[in-house]
Write a protein that binds this DNA or RNA. Structure first.
Length: 846
RNA sequence: GCCGGAGUGGCGGAAUCGGCAGACGCGCCGGACUCAAAAUCCGGUAUGGGCAACCAUGUGUGGGUUCAACUCCCACCUCCGGCACCA
């Protein structure tokens, strides 16, 4: 072989790495540890797209670099293998989801291995394997024992066509986002996890994390802490069985405005609605509540800008601040799921209440001064209390505190913190998920299975649809369902866990993946936890990361992990988009059906003009790029390098196949720099063993320094640019001493490992370079003896000087004044001021 | 509406403790090699004017601070992502 030929090089080295277990985690306690993790993929039938290798290449470069820097690196890969798509495919194709999943995993693994990623495959995990999910069940038991898992009758999104509940995020506009099937609200008994018990800690512990600020903020907003008070309102004329006046409680963040509460609102689902409604209003209220019940939460929220609606109950509540009777309304702008499901309405100082009050002609009262006319618009800003009795004259913050104290003294209210975060609906009516380790008695009571009864394996089924009477698919396994305990027949839980369950702890299993007696050993956890760098898509910013943090904290409380947080540093790679082409009728064309003429795009066959835009890759837009095709044409090293060279890792950026050609050319030049393309042997320039020129050494050491610091900062695009500069400079040299060649090859190796290995062996090393130490640089080469100094006149560049480093102002000024360009600008005018920054610039002000 | 991020050549992008804007790559133009093409190699390439040296303009828009602004401050526009009647 004489030319660079990735198709020949790459498979050989991939085989070499596997054969010699080059990337096996050493488990050598003398070495410092480094745990670098990718968000493991769901193995879909569509296979890998070019977005996957982006994050995987980044972590691979880090892993290879850290190994060379002497770390014991844990860099594993596995499969988030349970999930609905395989189950749907199973129903469609009449096959078993396990079979489909294993097939997809095989394909994913093949594609990933073609990229030359340095995973320790001996640690591969599969969340749908029995030895994995038995431990998911085991951890669920821990949650149950801590009182954090409970069965509750809750309103859910039920999709009749799919026969399952759906998570809130799977529903939009009353439809299942995947299929468009209608979703209805239904009350069902479901497993819930009490994530709300950890709300404050999930919020507080965000502070110590090295995460993107956007993700931290999204988590904070999702948790949604707000401080305020609960205030009790007595209901005039409505009594409890004890004879005391019935009351309801509202949550407010503005107790300072209590004197301005001119009405109150209950959510349609509020339990007191039926009781307090007067006979005269009953028909209207019932009709309203009935309608609201059939509107899914999400849809109600989408109506944010919609006209307010509501119905008067006929009842009145006593405002505890001033004893006034205020009407109680029912309206769907108040939600049962937040706070107490009831509010005090202060139309003068809340925009929503204001809109409602205007529509229904309810009184509006100013109680905080400092705004415009509250009859026109709510004043939500700062000010001083007015029309508020004992609060008058106080600023908002003091008035809040004073009012809460006053309410607490009188038993009319209490200081309170609430969170938007809700408990986690943890069951699904599906087959392809973890069975719960739970038995149910005839009377509905719960019998958790002991540890030694695990795993509860999935029974074999032929039909994965729900039963005809609407029970989950597992109810078809009649024998499996029935369990005899002490002569009593108990039934297994037939719901399964959601897909999030397996991904909540997989990073822990990677630490000790073959453990048969525990999910992971304490020693392994102490060695490897926490994950040092976690890389994945921003789409998991809230749910996966919040759920995993929650489980981690529960395990921490059980003494099973030694860190409060699972992922110390998080990095989100940006999505890769692609150009798409559309004609006036919005019909899409694939890139090979179109051509460019004078900056305008046309369909080749018909000449019809098309518009071009950058969009998400999708089949229907004909703009999907398959990594297999790129590897086949340019090789894995070129694909890796291009994905890293496109731009900053975190940026969203468009794919351009022409860019792959560019980096391929660079790899080709690396090859021809060291290899004689006629003979295929090491080039004469390397073999000559001449002294390296100072210019070459300078380039080399700067490259070593820059590439190392860029890798540490995940700035791969500029690292590659620096290596290109090195090669461009080295090409001009007569000789490339072996030592220089070797150090450059080592620097290149994390990025283009196949080519680097090949060159390394040509340089006479029989062993893989994967454990060679990272080259060190000599700082003396990083400083110049001479520096270029720009000379400005009135801030504009007029000349450039080359002066010795550290040159004094007088010297530089003298040289500058001799420059014709400078003289022309000065034109005999006196110099008013000289600004001189040593080794940087000279500016003359005239 | 609120929160977060970003606007730089024909294109992807470099450069922000304020100090030569456009590194590196793509594309394009010219040249070498070739019967020719591909590949490869060499040179050029922000925009406007000029044969040229050179001059002017230029980092989304409008102001400001400074000897000096892609970088700092104020106001605004556009795009991307997230949240959205959360009391």
């Amino acid at each position: 072989m004489t030319r660079y030929d990735p198709a020949e090089i790459e498979p050989r080295w991939q085989a070499h790495w596997v054969k010699h277990e080059c990337f096996k985690t050493l488990e050598d306690p003398r070495l410092p540890k480094y745990y670098v993790l990718d968000m493991f993929p769901y193995p879909s039938g569509a296979g890998l797209h070019v977005g996957h290798p982006e994050g995987y290449t980044a972590t691979d470069i880090i892993a290879r670099y850290k190994r060379m820097k002497g770390f014991d690196v844990l860099h594993p890969m596995g499969w988030d293998a349970f999930g609905l798509p395989a189950e749907r495919a199973a129903v469609r194709e009449g096959r078993h989801p396990a079979e489909i999943t294993q097939e997809n995993i095989k394909n994913f693994k093949r594609q990933i291995q073609r990229l030359g990623l340095s995973y320790d495959w001996s640690r591969e995990v599969d969340t749908s394997a029995v030895d994995y999910y038995r431990w998911t069940q085991w951890i669920f038991r821990k949650l149950y024992d801590q009182g954090l898992a409970y069965l509750a009758e809750v309103p859910v999104n039920w999709c009749p066509a799919q026969g399952t509940v759906l998570a809130n995020e799977e529903v939009a506009d009353g439809k299942y986002i995947e299929t468009g099937d209608p979703v209805e609200r239904r009350s069902m008994k479901q497993w819930m996890l009490k994530i709300t018990a950890y709300a404050q800690r999930l919020l507080d512990d965000l502070d110590g994390l090295d995460w993107p600020p956007g993700v931290l903020e999204m988590q904070r907003q999702w948790i949604g802490r707000s401080e305020g008070a609960e205030v009790h309102f007595a209901i005039a004329g409505v009594r409890e069985s004890s004879g005391a006046e019935e009351r309801f409680t509202v949550f407010t963040t503005r107790p300072d405005t209590l004197f301005g509460a001119t009405y109150a609102v209950l959510a349609p689902e509020h339990p007191l609605v039926e009781k307090i409604t007067t006979d005269a209003q009953r028909a209207a209220v019932r009709a309203y509540v009935e309608k609201a019940k059939n509107t899914a939460d999400k849809e109600r929220m989408l109506a944010a800008e919609r006209e307010k609606t509501g119905v008067f109950t006929g009842a009145y509540a006593r405002n505890p601040a001033n004893g006034e009777l205020v009407p109680i309304w029912v309206a769907d702008y108040v939600m049962m799921t937040y706070g107490t499901g009831a509010i005090m309405a202060v139309p003068g100082h809340d925009e929503r209440d204001h809109a409602f009050a205007v529509k229904f002609a309810l009184p509006i009262r100013e109680v905080i001064s400092g705004g415009a006319d509250v009859q026109q618009a709510a004043h939500t800003g700062d000010g001083v209390a007015v029309n508020s009795g004992f609060l008058d004259g106080l600023a908002v913050e003091q008035a809040k505190a004073q009012m809460i104290d006053w309410l607490e003294e009188r038993g009319s209210g209490v200081r309170r913190v609430t969170y938007k975060l809700r408990d986690w609906l943890f069951s699904r009516q599906r087959y392809w998920g973890e069975p719960f380790p739970i038995l149910l008695k005839q009377d509905g009571s719960i019998v958790p299975l002991p540890e030694d009864a695990l795993p509860v394996t999935l029974p074999h089924l032929e039909d994965f649809r729900p039963t005809s009477d609407g029970r989950p698919p597992l109810a078809r396994a009649e024998q499996w369902m029935k369990v005899e305990v002490n002569g009593e027949t108990l039934l297994r839980e037939t719901n399964t866990m959601p897909q999030w369950a397996g991904s909540c702890w997989y990073y822990l299993r990677f630490m000790d993946p073959q453990n048969a007696t525990l999910p992971f050993s304490p020693e392994a956890e102490r060695r490897w936890g926490p994950v040092d760098l976690y890389v994945g898509g921003v789409e998991h910013a809230v749910l996966h990361l919040l759920y995993a943090r929650f489980w981690h904290k529960v395990l921490y409380d059980c003494g099973l992990v030694h860190t409060k947080e699972p992922f110390q540093k998080l990095f989100n790679q940006g999505m890769i988009l692609a150009y798409s082409y559309q004609d006036a009728a919005k019909k899409y064309y694939s890139p090979d059906q179109v051509e460019e003429r004078d900056g305008q795009w046309f369909v080749k066959s018909s000449g019809v003009p098309v518009s071009t835009q950058i969009e998400k890759m999708s089949k229907s837009r004909y703009n999907v790029v398959n990594p297999d095709d790129i590897v086949a044409e340019y090789g894995a090293d070129a694909l890796r390098l291009y994905e890293m060279f496109m731009g900053p890792l975190e940026a969203v950026k468009p794919w351009q196949t022409s860019g792959v050609k560019g980096v391929y050319g660079f790899l080709d030049r690396c090859w021809s720099l060291l290899i004689d393309t006629k003979s295929g042997e090491l080039s004469e320039a390397v073999r000559a063993e001449a002294e390296a020129s100072p210019a070459l050494l300078k380039e080399l050491h700067r490259t070593i320094e820059k590439v190392g610091s860029d890798i540490e900062a995940l700035r791969f695009n500029t690292a590659i640019a620096r290596m290109m500069e090195f090669v461009n400079a080295a090409k001009k040299e007569r000789s490339i001493p072996r030592e220089v060649a070797e150090q450059f090859v080592l620097v290149l190796s994390p990025f283009a490992p196949h080519l680097a290995e090949k060159l390394w062996s040509r340089l006479g090393h029989p062993q893989s370079l994967s454990r060679e130490p990272w080259p060190s640089y000599d700082p003396k080469w990083l400083v110049d003896d001479e520096v270029g100094i720009p000379v400005q006149v009135n801030g504009k560049l007029r000349a450039s000087l080359t002066v010795p480093k550290g040159a004094k102002q007088e010297q530089v000024l003298e040289l500058a004044l001799a420059e014709p360009g400078v003289q022309k600008q000065l034109d005999g005018k006196p110099i008013r001021k000289v600004i001189f920054v040593p080794d940087r610039m000279l500016n003359l002000v005239v």
